[in-house]
Design a binder for these strands. Structure first.
Length: 226
DNA sequence: AAGCAGTGCAACCGCAGATCA
DNA sequence: CTGATCTGCGGTTGCACTGCT
């Protein structure tokens, strides 16, 4: 497995994307698709590397990507999913329609992680000087992400009242995936039962972990599968 | 009003798996 | 089968913005 040669750096832009670049990229993808990210910037006439184009498309330009504040439900879901999946942001993002792994990662690192730390040890809570302190203090309250400026968010609008729900079969899927992979021993360090994790190590503890999790989630169907 | 420090987000970097020739 | 290339992912960084002193 050779490492991919880093994209040609000379002459490539690394500044924030402009509206014009966004339009060029969107127009090219709408016309030709994005079967080859590496060749795309050249074909589209962009002075960007393929990775950069891909990231921009996935995180901001895709028509189905949501922009705006995370709801309390979404934040709770992220916390819950992170407790199961660890730092597998792409998998967490797959369960939050319209949200990207990068966005979820940012929210986790900037809000949720600190909030959980503060909750677990209130005395150690850092002094807050947030743009929107309400979001830090109250999980169910308004969210802290500022509404993006128009030129930064050319895609769909989003209201904080929008409902979020995890698929009914999510927990059973996750159980099959995570437990199955932990048996095969092929999981990465993000595995909740990985060697570097504080999660249960024996099968009994593991079972107990899932039982508690499904009870917490109210997922009787998955509970019965254990 | 100005300076400082903390916060949040967009973007980049580098690694690893998947795929292709 | 092997090596090269591409894609996707998670971690990290840079900087604009905000609020406090």
């Amino acid at each position: 497995m050779g490492r991919s040669p880093c994209c040609e750096k000379t002459g490539l832009k690394r500044a924030p994307w402009t509206a014009e670049e966004d339009m060029t990229l969107v127009a090219h993808i709408e016309r030709h698709g994005h079967s080859n990210w590496r060749a795309l910037p050249k074909q589209a006439g962009l002075l960007r590397c393929g990775k950069s184009c891909r990231l921009r498309w996935i995180n901001y330009l895709r028509p189905d990507v949501k922009r705006g504040n995370f709801t309390g439900e979404e934040e709770d879901a992220i916390i819950q999913l992170h407790s199961i999946l660890g730092n597998r942001w792409s998998m967490i993002a797959a369960k939050l329609p319209g949200r990207t792994d990068n966005e979820i990662k940012n929210v986790w690192n900037t809000h949720l992680k600190k909030r959980l730390e503060a909750a677990s040890s209130p005395s150690a809570a850092p002094k807050r000087k947030a743009k929107n302190p309400v979001a830090v203090a109250a999980p169910e309250g308004p969210n802290s992400l500022p509404a993006p400026s128009p030129e930064q968010s050319p895609s769909t609008s989003y209201t904080s009242d929008e409902e979020f729900q995890i698929d009914d079969n999510f927990w059973s899927e996750t159980l099959a995936m995570t437990v199955g992979s932990s048996v095969s021993g092929t999981e990465s360090s993000g595995d909740p039962f990985g060697a570097d994790s504080a999660s249960p190590s024996s099968s009994n503890e593991e079972m107990d972990f899932w039982v508690r999790l499904f009870i917490q989630a109210g997922d009787v169907q998955s509970l019965s599968q254990i």
